[in-house]
Design a protein around this nucleic acid. Sequence first.
RNA 1: GCGCCCGUAGCUCAGUGGAUAGAGCGCCUGCCUCCGGAGCAGGAAGUCGGAAGUUCGAAUCUUCCCGGGCGCGCCA
Length: 568
Amino acid sequence: MPAEPVTSPAPGIDAALRSAIAELATSAAGLEVTAERVVLSPPRQAGHGDLATNVAMMFAKQAGKPPRELAEAIAAGLPELLGDRIAGVEVAGPGFLNLTLGDAYYRDGLGVVAGAGDQWGGGTAAVSEHVNVEFVSANPTGPMHIGHARNAAYGDAIARLFAFHGHRVEREYYVNDFGSQVANLGASISARARGEAVPEGGYQGEYVQELAAQIPGAADASIDELSDAGIEAMLARARDTLDRFGVHFDRYFSERTLHDGEPSPFDIALARLRESGDLEQEDGAWWLRTERRGDDKDRVVIRASGEPTYFASDLAYLLDKVARGYDRLVFVLGADHHGYIGRMRAAVEAFGGDPEGVELLTMQLVHLVEGGEQVKMSKRAGQFVTLDDLVDMVGVDAARWYLLQRSHDTAVELDVELARKESSENPVFYVQYAHARACSVLTRVGPEAAALAGSLAGDGAAALAELPVSVEPAEKALVLKLGELPEVVGQASDRRAPHRIATYALELAQTFTAFYRDCKVAGAEGEGVEAWRAALTQATATTLATSLGLLGVSAPQSMERRELDADA
RNA sequence: GCGCCCGUAGCUCAGUGGAUAGAGCGCCUGCCUCCGGAGCAGGAAGUCGGAAGUUCGAAUCUUCCCGGGCGCGCCA
C-alpha cells in the first residue's frame, strides 16, 4: 500500500532560521546539513539567549573540525542572512550557539501561527498513512470499567493525533458477540429472571439483574434469545457510555459475522493458512506456526476437541483487516496482553501483510485515589469502578485529562478529589480557565484590535509584521511557546504519546498567564500595541483549544461553576 | 527460569545525547485601586534504584545487579 506524501506541511515559525543555520553549517562543515537536522531549543538558563542550537557539536566530529570553530563560522554568517530577525549570536561552552532574536522574528512568527488558525501544528507528517486503530473492544458481557476508560481515552486521543498530524484514521471496536461467554450471559440472565442464583461461572453483577428486568418475557425466553437480547442491550449501553465520554467509532466489527455464510470468513482464513503451510495438525489440534515467524512458540487454533480457540476468530478478523489494505494496524490493549505482539505480527505476515505495520500498545493500570485511599465501590458493577462512575465523579473533561496526562506505559494514580476541584490547583481547570480568560479579554478590546484578531486567517496575519510594536519578554516567551506546537504534535503522534500534548497545554497556559499578568491587552497604550496583543491572545486561545481538542477535552469560552461553594 | 514495562523532589509524574534535571500536588513566605483574584509571585526540597562502560557531554545509549508490576494455557 503506497503511502501518500503530504502535500504542504505548514512551515514552522523557525523555518527561515533553521534553513539559514543549515546553509551556513553546510558550507562550514563541508558536508550536507539539512534544515531538519537543526535542533533549536529554548535554553534553560537566562543569559543563554532566546534559542540555542547544538549543530556545531553535532557535526564537528564528522566534519573533522573543532565544534567552536564551526559555531563561529555559523555565527558570523547569520546576521547577513536573517537581517533584523536576529539581534545577537554568541558561541558558548563547548560549541553552543546562543541566539537572541529580533522583534521582527516574533512578528513574523506570530503571523505564521495566527495565519494557520485552527490548523496550526497539524499536517506535518512526512508520510501520510492509512491507520486503523482498534481500541476498547470490551466484552459485551459486562460494564466498562476504569481500565476501559483509559483505553478509550488513549485510543481516541492517538486517533485524533494521527488525523491532525496528517494521517487517515479509522476507529474500530471488535465486538466479542460469539462463543461460550455469550451463552453464559444468556444463562445468567435466565437464572436472574426466574429468581434463581446464577450458574457456576456465570455473571454475578447487578447489571445482569437489570437486564433480566429490562428484557420482556425474560423468565420464559430461551437461553439463545436471552443471549442475543443481552448482548444487544449491553452493546447499546457501551455505545451510550462511550458517546457520553466523547468517543465515537467508525466501525463496530461483530465477531459473529465471521461465522456467517458458507464458506464463512472464518473458514476462508483457516483454509488460507492451511494452504500456506502455516496451519498444521499435531496431536489432534491445529497449530499456527508462529514461532518460525518470530513468536515465542506456536499457537493452538483448533483444539483437539474440535473447538476453535479465541485466537481462531482473531485470525479471521485479522485477515479482514489486512485485506482492507491499511498501512498500519494499531491495537490498544491492557497490560496483560503484551504477550500478543509476537503472534499477531506472525499472523499478519502469514497473511502476506507487513508485520512492521502492526503495533500493539499496552496500557498500564489506573488506581483511583480519594483522600489517600483507593476507591473501589461502584453503584453499577458492585466492586469495580466503571467508566460511568468515573464520569459521574469528576466529569468527562477531568476524566480524560487525568487518564491522558501520563505516558501509557506507566501506571497512574488518579486523585478524584483533585480532579474535581475547580481552581488553579487542578491542571485541567487551569488550562480551560486560561482559554476562557483569553476569550474574555478578546471581548474587551477596541474595534481595531478586534478587527485584526478576527481577520488573522485572512490578510490580518500579514499585517502583523507591519505593526510598529516592540516585543516584550512575556510576549516573546508566548510566541516561542506557540511555535512549539508542530514539533510537539509530531512527537506525540510518532511516539503515540498524547500526554505530551497535556504537558504542552499546561505550559502554554502558564506562559499565557504570565503574559496576561505583564501585558495589558484591552486598552493598551501605544500604536498597534492593543492590536498586536489581541492577535497574540487570539492565537493562544486557538492553540489552547487545539491542544485540548486533541485530548478530547472541551475548551469553554467561559467557565461556569458546577456547584456553589458553601462560603461563596 | 524466560520475555515486556517501570524505578527521577515528601506524593503523583514529565523529561529517549547537551549547559546549573522540571511540572502539578503538599509545605513555607509574600501580593487584591489593575482586561476573569475561580488569580499571581517567590522559597525550601533530588547520590535521576546501584555499579561499570560508550561519549567532548548520559536521567536518556550498552552490560550486569537490586527492587516492583505484568505475561509466559488445547482460558477468554
